[in-house]
């Protein structure tokens, strides 16, 4: 109870702010509509209008929820009008991209930790790779892979992986070098080989860093998947929903897609958090 109270209060404040924003942002739009129809309107009618506009600047919360519920439950899940269908398309690209990116990021970190030349030669490129705007890279990747006959899930996953390997590499380099000198000296007194030092010291020491960076990476890979759906001609996925929504001025549809993306992100982060907690417990963390 003591924990839930403040959370409820903050959520309430956010909802109130959202309503206030909807009223303020849509007011001139609604006023114009009334004026064009040459009807007298009261303040109450104006406010009611702002919260129920057809193409609002900022849709009211209940409009977004209604649209969300309708597009989730109103159509069969394999229909192109169903938000479940689009969410699934994006989620699958996210998960595959995240897996690719995480593995690549970990392998890169292991290489960097074990070979100084690799650090010197690769790190600038890794950092450079992250300064290139993904919106510029995404169409290139899609077109190039399309030319060699790779379509669908994989190109999107690769873009997603391209974005999300970075925090994993940075976190894991830190994690794999985190054992303190005494712990490494001990390994040396036992004449442990590099593989044993890795398996029995470096890897377990890096686990807390791994889960922290995976949490960052999974949200980034979702963003990557959505962005990579934009240049594909907006066939399917949450990115496509956002694009068609903005083509046709369907702000409510955009917001519903954003809500779906937020829910997916929350679920993914929660899943990684749970995996992290489970691992922590197995590794004797003080809870």
């Amino acid at each position: 109870m003591s924990e839930r109270g403040p959370i409820v209060v903050i959520v309430l404040i956010l909802v109130i702010l959202w309503y206030a924003a909807a009223i303020l942002m849509n007011a001139s739009l609604v006023r114009d509509t009334f004026r064009r129809a040459e009807v007298k309107y009261s303040l109450t009618e104006l406010i009611a209008g702002t919260l129920d506009a057809k193409r609002p600047v900022v849709p009211a919360p209940q409009q977004v929820v209604a649209q969300f519920v309708d597009s989730v439950f109103g159509y069969p899940p394999d229909s192109p009008r169903s938000l479940v269908y689009h969410s699934w398309v994006t989620l699958s690209a996210t998960v595959v991209g995240f897996a690719l990116g995480a593995v690549f990021g970990i392998v890169l970190a292991i290489g960097i930790v074990h070979m100084r030349t690799l650090e010197k030669s690769l790190l600038p490129w890794i950092i450079f790779s992250q300064t290139v705007p993904i919106l510029a890279i995404a169409p290139i990747v899609i077109v190039v892979l399309g030319a060699i006959g790779i379509h669908g899930l994989l190109p999107k996953s690769i873009i997603s992986a391209y974005l999300c390997f970075f925090p994993v590499t940075i976190g894991m380099v830190k994690g794999l070098t985190s054992p303190d000198p005494i712990q490494r000296d001990l390994m040396r007194t036992w004449s442990a080989g590099p593989t044993q030092v890795f398996r029995k010291l470096r890897w377990p020491s890096s686990v807390p860093f791994l889960f922290a960076s995976l949490k960052v990476a999974v949200t980034i890979s979702l963003v990557g998947a959505i962005v990579s759906e934009l240049p594909t001609g907006a066939q399917a996925g949450l990115g496509a929903r956002l694009l068609t929504g903005s083509y046709y001025g369907q702000t409510v549809q955009i917001w519903a897609a954003l809500l779906a993306a937020a829910i997916i992100a929350a679920v993914l982060v929660a899943a990684i958090d749970a995996a992290g907690k489970w691992t922590d417990r197995r590794m004797g963390a003080r809870i």
């Binding site: 001990l186 390994m187 007194t189 442990a192 590794m283 004797g284």
Partner: peptide, 27 residues
């Protein structure tokens, strides 16, 4: 030789028995 440091330097993710077992695993 066996080396004992000022700090116990037990690996925190291993139980006591698995800490004792660590050099044995390595060897």
């Amino acid at each position: 030789y066996g080396y004992i440091f000022q700090a116990p330097a037990l690996y925190p993710w291993r139980t006591i028995e698995r800490n004792v077992a660590l050099p044995l695993e390595i060897m």
